[in-house]
Simulated scan of single mutants.
Amino acid sequence: MTLRRLFKELGRSQRDFSTHVHWNHTAVSRYLRGERLPPWEFVDTLLREVEMARDERMSHCYWGEIAALHRRALEERNGWSALVQVLRQDSQLAEERARRAESQLQALVPTRQARDKGWRWSAFIDSLAERGWPDASITALDRVTARALACLADPTTEVACRTSGVVAAGVQSGRTTIGAGIIARALDAGYRLVIVFSGTLNLLRSQTQRQLEEALLASDSADQQLQARFPLLRLTSKESDYRSMPPGSALQFEKRHEALPLFSPPNLHPVVPRLLVVKQNVAILKRLLKDLRHAGPILEEVPSLIVDFEPSPPYLALHGDGSGNETGPQSRIDLIRSEIVSLMPRAQLVRFENRVTCDSSPTITTMQSESLWDGPPDFVVSAHPREPRWAQEDPA
């Protein structure tokens, strides 16, 4: 009955339909009269033809209902011999789900990207222009941040990849502004967890938080409307460093399409980005590490950016504090930071250094490690002193 009802929607004869789908006319006639149970390939073909006639897709639930009816009929008529046909049906249904998911991806991605691509970066440089930044300084900032982002992995790539890079920018060279620009571009690109390591003092952490909020959050009513549509969830504030959170709270990431990974565009772009600015303190970093562990396997699918404004010297981190103490506070901090990174295979690290030197001396050679802080960086971007200096105009 169901097949006959669907066939009537085509408005064509059985012979014409048989010729069109290259199926034996006699077999088609028996299938539609209920004399023989059709294979799933025939049912699949009929459903696709009906979709074309309607000029719209049937719901996934309706396909499932038809498949369930067909499976019950197979079991009643053929018993165990129906197993092969059932497996074939499952395979074809899986292909159909994948085809529909791909279709949804193609429909959703351009629309979403057209709405939010580049918005935070554009708002950021507009705010700098409003504060009186000269065009030459904005151009230099644009060049440095674009170079850095181009060296990071694509957040939607299938293969997880960790990248470590250095931005060479001295003290009082506007490194927080450069970092804010990199973060703005990264958020627009699809990074959804940003962890910023500031200094070891509350004052420095609070100052970094304030500067980043001024750079990344809306300042006027027009931008505030966009901010409401594309929010940024802050897990720290100017007054408060990171605090422990209950399981299932802000560090949990939900997917709209369970069949797709979080880093796929249909899932990634609707996710609200998280921003944390944490002091490099053992107790606070342990808190963060514990909560990230509670987040579970989903963290492996989250494109993450780690910005380190005050990296420690690698030699000191690996060999102690210079007084023979192998487990000093800085060493413990580096170990915890490395554990944090190990939970995120899609983490990208951008470190700010006063200068970068290449020393091949064997006395500096250190043991190999999986930490992004150890060993040579994957890339180096220099805020070249001959380029326009933005430190003097930095409103922060």
Rank of each mutant, 00 (worst) to 15 (best):
R72Y: 09
T200Q: 15
D334C: 15
A129H: 11
A82N: 08
N325H: 10
R99N: 05
T2V: 12
A169V: 05
G118L: 07
T365H: 04
L335Q: 13
S382F: 06
K255A: 11
T208C: 04
S304P: 08
P311W: 00
V28T: 15
R30K: 14
S81L: 10
R337D: 03
S338Y: 00
A129N: 11
R175C: 02
W121H: 09
S198G: 04
T157G: 14
T327S: 14
I138P: 07
V350K: 01
K286D: 13
T156R: 11
W373E: 05
R115T: 06
E214I: 01
I306V: 09
R97F: 01
R131K: 12
P313S: 04
P247K: 13
S164F: 00
V282A: 01
S361H: 11
L69V: 09
H25Q: 13
F17Y: 15
R120P: 10
S342C: 03
S173H: 08
R15H: 07
A98E: 15
S81Y: 03
L292C: 01
P314R: 14
A169D: 01
Q172M: 00
V277T: 14
P345H: 06
R234A: 09
L93W: 02
E49R: 02
F17Q: 11
N325Q: 08
V21E: 05
Q280T: 14
D55Y: 00
R120Y: 00
L217P: 08
V166M: 08
R115P: 04
R234Q: 13
R33K: 15
A222F: 00
S361K: 05
R12A: 11
I333A: 00
L32D: 08
V171E: 06
A73N: 12
E130Y: 02
E130I: 06
L69R: 13
C151H: 15
I195L: 11
L128S: 12
P377M: 02
P345Y: 01
Y62T: 10
N281Q: 13
L233M: 09
Q211L: 07
E214H: 08
D55K: 15
L276N: 09
R54T: 02
E76V: 11
A396C: 06
R210L: 00
T366V: 06
C161I: 06
S237A: 14
P345R: 10
R33E: 07
L201M: 08
